[in-house]
Design a protein around this nucleic acid. Structure first.
Length: 591
RNA sequence: GGGGCUGUAGCUCAGCUUGGUUAGAGUGCCGCACUGUCACUGCGGAGGUCGCGGGUUCGAGCCCCGUCAGCCCCGCCA
């Protein structure tokens, strides 16, 4: 497959089996070792490295001269014979380390300027600054680590297509130029030249289109969909990203989950990991109660417990004061942890930066409870708390909205201690029964937790008109080792329920028509029950590649300021180009 | 929108605590030597707007203010 007019093999593909054969290779000079009379070159391509041996015994003088002067990262074409090496190369990962190519012809085809950032690093040498890696992305992408990441990404994509196609899903593309959506994330807008003052938006997800496809009878749809959101970035968030997007008709929640489990099981298998299905289920309420977060890391315990009803008269006044005001005393028992004072401070910092006023702690020793929190907890609580010697009680008092994130932060920090998380564990879980609506912390307004097409839980329909905040949703998240991999839901197909949801959210009938008229009409034209899911593919690739940033599994990523350093986007456009789009800029100071 | 960290040779970093002679190291690059290396080795050499702008000072890589860029986090991400 690697054979072309110019070459017979890839460098890294050569092995013992090729000994004795004449080969032609093309690749990049990775390193040069010039010993005077003889020269060794490491030649690299996407399969790996092979050593080229240039020796006057078999290499013509001109080729030897070139070998002695060729710069690293230059592209050469080589002819020679594969021979067994007396001593194999030292890199045990290289399949080609047992052989070398005795060079009989060498031709420079792509001379390289001295690389601005190193491709071949010395042992233990740090990577160049990420800014430079992104600026010289062509060089950075030559590094074997990034080559491996993108090759794995390819295999994962092909596997996702195969899994879903085998399950009867049809890959259907949806538009990139779409209609702006006023809620949700900020849209990237594309001004129309033909229609002055009007804009398209790039899709935040193919959500509505895939539902329309269900109304059209396509039954099972999927797409490897590029999505765009104009929000501030993180290590695990890019302005454009890839989802494995799917939707199916005549399904209930369990059907969608089974499909997604198959996709995830196969993705992990593609990366060499066997994972068991089905995944355990956890309700949203339970996840928040036991782990303080809706994407708990289930690789370890350290669960949160409610200590409120153990609080006795001897507890500190501020604990008593907090309890009647919707507050609870919640904590984590950490067993057998000889935490230093510094580590405890670090846990307290974690709790504080998550919004807690402070972290209460007490340690149980042979002599009894000791620590800063003993007085706060009071004797009654401590007497009822039976723990092994050396264990520690870490707690926070207040409203759940504060204690949950604080204790999640403490739990996560505790798990960084060695021995808490066994490496190689794959803790998948479904989080189900999310609330349909949640209250905006700053404005107090009710907003949808997921999106307004998510179906209420059938058991809670009765509350929709009277106590909508009690409604659970047929919404589910896939969680892996504390990461959200994706989410989905069963959609509303009853126009009456859809109108009720819109009304509760304060969207008028007129607004409903303007924004979602096409969807409402489609629902009224014969809608099958349907639901679906979207998996964050970049994040999956990142986790399976063992990368710490999305940028290491995307060929040309943006910076945290959403700039493309390699090609230099975005740029200021000319007044003429703006005029063609009927636009004028306000300038930086007023913008 | 807010907070934190970083910015010194092509690259990775030291120097800043306590302002003071000519800003150092490793690597890469260039030159010379070297016939079995694999992070080749040895010798020599070149290479610096100390991110940018302003200020304090007799004097600023170092102190102060601003600004730009990258990274991390909060807000945000239906």
């Amino acid at each position: 497959m690697a054979s072309t007019t110019l070459r017979t093999h890839r460098c890294g593909a050569l092995s013992r089996a090729d000994v004795g054969s004449k080969v032609r290779l093309g690749g990049w000079i990775h390193r040069r070792r010039d010993l005077g009379g003889i020269v060794f070159l490491d030649l690299r391509d996407r399969d790996g490295l092979v050593q080229l041996a240039c020796n006057p015994l078999w290499t013509p003088a001109a080729a030897l001269t070139l070998a002695a002067s060729v710069g690293v990262e230059s592209v050469v074409l080589v002819e020679g014979e594969v021979t067994l090496r007396d001593e194999p190369g030292r890199d045990p990962k290289l399949a080609s380390r047992e052989v070398e190519v005795r060079v009989s012809r060498l031709r420079m085809v792509g001379a390289a300027a001295t690389p601005a950032i190193p491709v071949a690093r010395r042992e233990g040498e740090e990577l160049a600054a990420e800014e430079l890696r992104l600026q010289y992305r062509v060089l950075d992408l030559r590094r074997p680590e990034l080559q491996a990441n993108l090759i794995m990404r390819h295999h994962l994509l092909q596997r996702a297509r195969r899994t879903l196609s085998d399950l009867g899903f049809l890959e259907i593309e949806t538009p990139i130029l779409t209609k702006p959506t006023p809620e949700g994330a900020r849209d990237f807008l594309v001004p129309s030249r033909v229609h002055p003052g009007e804009c398209y938006a790039l899709p935040q997800s193919p959500q509505i289109y895939k539902q329309l496809l269900m109304m059209s009878g396509f039954d099972r749809y999927f797409q490897i969909a590029r999505c765009f959101r104009d929000e501030d970035l993180r290590a695990d968030r890019q302005p454009e990203f890839t989802q494995i997007d799917l939707e199916a008709s005549f399904v209930a929640e369990a059907d969608v989950l089974a499909v997604v489990e198959a996709v995830l099981r196969d993705q992990w298998a593609e990366a060499g990991h066997l994972v068991a299905v089905p995944f355990p289920h956890l309700t949203h309420r339970e996840a928040m109660e036991r782990f303080g977060i809706d994407k708990p890391d289930l690789r370890f315990g350290l669960e949160i417990t409610d200590l409120s009803d153990r609080v006795g008269p001897g507890a500190a006044p501020f604990v008593h004061d907090a309890l009647p005001r919707n507050g609870r005393l919640r904590g984590i028992v950490a067993e057998d942890t000889a935490l230093s004072r510094k580590e405890i401070d670090s846990l307290a910092d974690a709790a504080k930066s998550a919004g807690a006023g402070g972290l209460l702690w007490a340690r149980f020793e042979d002599a009894g409870w000791e620590g800063q929190g003993v007085k706060a907890f009071g004797p009654e609580l401590l007497a009822q708390t039976v723990v092994p010697s050396g264990a520690m009680l870490l707690a926070v008092v207040g409203a759940d909205a504060m204690t949950s994130p604080a204790l999640h932060a403490v739990r996560t920090r505790l798990a960084q201690r060695p021995g808490i998380i066994f490496p190689g564990r794959h803790a998948f879980a479904w989080i189900v029964d999310f609330p349909l609506f949640e209250q905006d912390q700053s404005t107090g307004e009710w907003v949808f937790t997921h999106h307004p097409f998510t179906s209420p839980h059938p058991d809670d329909i009765e509350f929709l008109e009277t106590e909508p905040w009690r409604c659970r949703a047929l919404h589910y998240d896939a969680v892996y080792n504390g990461n959200e991999l994706g989410s989905g839901s069963i959609r509303i197909t009853d126009p009456v329920i859809q109108a009720t949801v819109f009304r509760f959210l304060g969207i008028s009938a007129e607004e409903q028509r303007n924004r979602f008229g096409f969807l409402l009409d489609a629902l009224a034209s014969g809608a099958p029950p349907h639901g679906g899911f979207a998996l964050g593919f970049d994040r999956i690739a990142m986790l399976l590649a063992g990368a710490s940033s999305l940028r290491d599994v995307i060929a040309f990523p943006k910076t945290t300021a959403a700039r493309a350093l390699f090609e230099g986007a975005p740029i200021t456009v000319s007044a003429k180009d703006l005029a063609a789009l009927h636009l004028r800029t306000l300038g930086k100071e007023t913008g």
